[in-house]
Design a binder for these strands. Sequence first.
RNA 1: GCCCCCGUAGCUCAGUGGAUAGAGCGCAGGCCUCCGAAGCCUGAAGCAGCGGUUCGAGUCCGCUCGGGGGUACCA
Length: 561
Amino acid sequence: MTTAELIQGLLRDALARAASELGWPASDATLEVEHPADPAHGDYATSVALKLARPLRKPPLEIATAIRDRVAPHEAVSAVTVAKPGFVNVALNDAWVAAQVEVIARAGTDFGRTKALAGSRIQVEFVSANPTGPVTVANARGGPLGDVIASLLAFHGADVQREYYVEDTGTQVDRFGMSIAVRYRQLFGEEIELPPDGYPSDYIKDIARLLGDRDGDAHLRLPLDEQAKLFVPFGIEWVVGEAKRVTVKLGIAFDVWFMQHTLLTSGYFDETMTKLREKGYLVERDGAVWFDSPDVPRDKARDGEDKEEGWVVVRSNGDPTYLGKDIAYHRLCLEQRGLDRKINVWGANTQYHLLQMKIALPALGIPDDRWRVVLYQYVRFVHEGVLQRMGKRTGQFLLLEDVLDAVGKDATRFFLLQSSADRQLDFDFELALQQSNENPVYYVQYAHARIASIFRTASEKDLSSADADVSLLTDAAELQLVRHCLRFPELVAELRETLGVHALTTYAMELAGLFHGFYKGNRVVGDDAARSKARLRLVEAVQLTLRQVLTLLGVSAPDQM
RNA sequence: GCCCCCGUAGCUCAGUGGAUAGAGCGCAGGCCUCCGAAGCCUGAAGCAGCGGUUCGAGUCCGCUCGGGGGUACCA
């Protein structure tokens, strides 16, 4: 149980007693606790009395007082007070706070960990960039995001699979194959132009060259479209190999690389369509197969023209659409594979697809609460002095690997994780290089390394944190550190619901900042052996907490830097 | 046109409807005979605008302005 949950429980009990003793009518106001901005207001506060004032038709201060008077005594709490205009403030008992140092240090890598999701199998699907080129910084945003979400869910006991969905079929992939074929022909001196919808970048030439190295001119006499078809698996293999290599470099280990074409070759796609058809959700029109249901929006007024109703799942040429395949893929994961939940980390351009899926999956009997999408906004980058959107199709992008090589894994991850997913992110490569040494990740890592250094100093003096008496920790500066460590379990519990993992970076900076301030003003290893031991135990708890956060973020926690 | 996301300090970003809006970079100034100055301390500087809901709004609602995305038999 987190400290916040402890306090919340005490306050809720008090409210329930007040309500029953004073005959208050039931209310749907829930009692939430928060951390007051001003430490003078204590460690926790609730504004429930203010919210109850109207339904109970009583002054907030009277309600607050009634609650305060009924809070059961607890060793963790030193004072419960009422403040204008109707807050109930709770101050933690300093001795109890100090004792938590021991609890934290003993918990070790279990600190903050829960079993809340034990027994549930959850897939986190992320990156899943079109396999038509190398991973760019744009796709890469989903990398750390999905990876940290996966780590967080595992931290709460879930059995987590990290999955990369390789979308190796479809129109874009056809164009990819065509582009390779054109470059292949050029390799042997043929004068042939890349079609306008081809992929223009040089990596296609690299793939063609590798193909030429392997097979020589063996395929030269085939028609272009047959070459295109033939070269796709080779190209995909190259791209997937690159994606594996680069994501590993970014610190991500996918458990499953799911190849989309297996959905089709296994017959699972057709089976899924059959099931939809049986339930009456498919209609044939203009040679294509459409998904339609009463929930599909009917907006006929678009641009003054009538809109076709429904969405195509199989094109008139027989090829499944992305939507059709994704319906089958989700069914595969949630029914066939028996996953309890699927979490998709998708880029902002999938918002309409998301709407379609929200309507299509329930048609198959797959409820909303079994899958969830974390949508992240685009990463733009500065190209020739102008902010631009990245795209493999336009040939304008910044490669993830170039950034990784320039600023390193830790700084890259920390940068991409700092802002919330629904905020657009701009990446200036020059600025990133310039500021790489100023990246806040070093501020956090430095705190961790500094503590390691303290322990090196201590061991030279034969001091350790063993049998420390943490009750000697009574200074406000010391206890402030502990108080902040105690927020870590609260944060990760909250993130279990919100998945707003960027908050971990903010927390890491806060805790590091508190430690740096403490370090400046307080000697850990000093003349007083008992006090030194207690403080060693304290900074051990701080270091441990920092390490927990950094580990979740997938950022290294160095002992020296 | 319609739909979604976002506008917070010069820059990059935090900020669960609460009590005096924070951090890093940059800028001005100060701090190493003492566990690591990749640090600390001080200062200047901000909620795009207008209404509304609320005891209380950066946070919720509406409109305006600005940025991004979507509205395919692309993915």
